[in-house]
Design a protein around this nucleic acid. Structure first.
Lengths: 372, 372
DNA sequence: GACAGCAACACAACCGTTTGCATTAATTGG
DNA sequence: CCAATTAATGCAAACGGTTGTGTTGCTGTC
């Protein structure tokens, strides 16, 4: 039913190669013929079959995007940016969700390999060596992880975590906790490394809790541990966990930020909507998506020569690694510590929810529910 | 570089057709040959090229999923469910985002048409006639919309909206507002129709505000209108708008649910995390994603006969239309109306935020921030 | 007037599969 | 022992494009 190049050729009385060139190399065909062919193509509703083209050109004009969990609000902006950027370059994006499962990750790379010109591996949970091995099968760009010899786009969560810890130290907190992320997460390791270093150099004590599932439930489940650890401030692997924790603490009658300060990472849209609004480290997710697509397509422009089974060397892509900056955004979930390290000793139903912000707090917070 | 069927044939000393059959029709090849071929394939890391297969079989084993806005938390669970279901049936999913733009929607269908075996059109904003026209180009399953003659999977938002309005009426509210959704949204029309009918039969007054962008910002921007309209309860097109509205009202010192009750639709994960927790109509998004994939693939199983350009008729798919049930879930953003129609007259900084729940309120709410 | 140069197009091989049909060898029935 | 059947495999034509290499006809030059 759909019109093929042959239908157009027949209708316009030229050879199929002329039709093909009308689209791929217009300067090679006579202007008069060109308009005639284009008219026929339009008439028949002809659209080139990309799969057929891929067969001979070797470029599918598809890219794969492998994500740990689409339902995690951290990812949609990245997906959206990648998809949009790809579309501008006339590429389509396969999105696949691994449910945080490293095995599913590997299978998906294999499954997509032949079908795409490259794969964006977003927050991979598998091992570096496996990633390197897979990269021999299909061009890979790694997001949120550093892998030697491979193009990577990372966000500087180390710097972000440091800023967060320093913010908490400046507020007077001395007993801190870090809720770490899932096993296998490069981001989680970076955060931990930086947070530990920052806490130590600030003379504070930092307890690491985890690994944990990077979800709201994961955070909520840690409320009890946080409570008993006696810390006055917490840095969470991501906003979702931070929000879950706040929720969990609330069930124990512990108030944020009056009793405990909480900092998240990511700055998902949600973090502006919960009460208290979350202090968090903003990560440039959209930029990461765009950049990753650019890096993948940049080296991908050249057309594969005819019969040449490309040898081992020479198309060794320049493995740029870019690090995007993060930024601490201070909202309402952090407040100065009281002299004893806690602002208020877990009062459940205090009639006055206000815990006046001390001079160290950079924004005018009034604690609790506040318009801003 | 990647091994082809010819490489495997050469290595195992058989014809390529035998290799092909080893995978697609194993019973036709000698068991001994089969194991030999499989061993060679394994050795060479051979994986069939799906594009090449698609060329001749006519099935790409891809499906397209077109979404209004990936960043809207309503969609990710649907995407995830669709992707998972598709993968189980050995299909891959192209995800594309239209940014709520009907024109982008049409272009995307065209662009995907040749590349997929069918397209899931999720919450389309274009016209019915255009959808019907596009359905002649590629099999379509429509989600969140009813189009005659096309397979559709809908959620019964009409029933949901009625339940929401009746809930508000039972709480004593008599002046209501409806924040409608984007222009072109079937869901928005359904909600409006049902809400208007329910309000009328309950003897209440209902103001319709909109159309509006279905986002948090869209909701927040309506706070002023809602305030001045003097209503005591609001039903929003979706949770995002409801949450935005609550935020916007808060800036005017209007409390939810003490001063105004707010009901959302969708029950996105977020609605459990904001304060107050949102009363909302839960829509079965994951089920919708799964069902849509099933409906698409169900009629898609047959292999296209060899040279037969399938005629007009006979593969007229049975156009099942399924309606999934919704459910009102009552949380903390709705409370009984006071005799004068408002619980509290916009007190900005009242020291006591509690507005005791009346007997009509089904859950023990204490208003404001509460653990539950 | 012969020939180079060029523009415009046609020809045909090829990409990696699938699949109807032909071929061969082994098995069975009469 | 021969014909008929069956199992296993080879052969080659597609699928819908792209692209290197002719082929043709025209222009301009000496």
């Amino acid at each position: 039913m759909p019109a093929t190049i042959r239908d157009v050729a027949r209708a316009s009385g030229v050879h199929i190669s002329t039709v093909s060139r009308t689209f791929s190399a217009p300067h090679l065909v006579n202007p008069e013929t060109r308009v005639r062919v284009l008219a026929c193509a339009e008439e028949l509703g002809y659209r080139p079959n990309r799969a057929a083209r891929a067969l001979i050109t070797g470029r599918t004009h598809n890219i794969g995007l492998i994500i740990a969990d689409i339902a995690n609000p951290f990812f949609p902006p990245l997906i959206k940016a990648a998809e949009s950027q790809a579309r501008h370059r006339d590429y389509h994006v396969f999105v696949a969700d691994t449910n945080e499962d490293p095995v599913a990750e590997e299978e998906l790379v294999h499954a997509l390999a032949k079908q795409v010109d490259g794969v964006l591996l977003c927050s991979p949970r598998m091992s570096n060596s496996l990633i390197e091995q897979l990269s021999r099968e299909v061009p890979l760009v790694v997001i949120n992880r550093q892998v030697a010899g491979l193009p990577c786009v990372m966000m500087d969560v180390g710097q972000g975590a440091r800023a967060a810890i320093e913010h908490l130290l400046a507020l007077g907190h001395r007993k801190l906790a870090l809720l770490s992320g899932p096993r296998g997460s490069w981001t989680s390791r970076e955060i931990r490394r930086s947070a530990v270093a920052a806490a130590r150099s600030g003379g504070a004590e930092l307890t690491v809790l985890g690994p944990n599932p990077p979800t709201e439930t994961g955070g909520a489940g840690l409320a009890d541990q946080v409570r008993r650890s006696g810390v006055s401030a917490v840095l969470a692997y991501n906003d979702l966990m931070a929000i879950g924790l706040i929720d969990g603490l609330d069930a124990y009658g512990i108030r944020v930020p009056q009793d405990v300060s909480v900092v998240g990472i990511d700055d998902i849209a949600l973090s502006r909507l919960t009460r208290p609004k979350l202090t968090t480290v903003a990560t440039p997710t959209s930029a990461a998506g765009r950049t990753a697509v650019d890096m993948l397509l940049q080296h991908d422009a050249g057309v594969r020569p005819r019969g040449v089974r490309s040898g081992t060397s020479d198309d060794r892509r320049t493995t740029a690694q870019v690090m995007l900056q993060t930024e601490l955004v201070i909202r309402d979930s952090t407040a100065p510590a009281t002299p004893d390290g806690r602002c208020r000793s877990g009062a459940v139903a205090d009639p006055d929810p206000h815990c006046p912000a001390g001079p160290g707090h950079p924004v005018a917070t009034t604690g609790g529910v506040v318009a801003s």
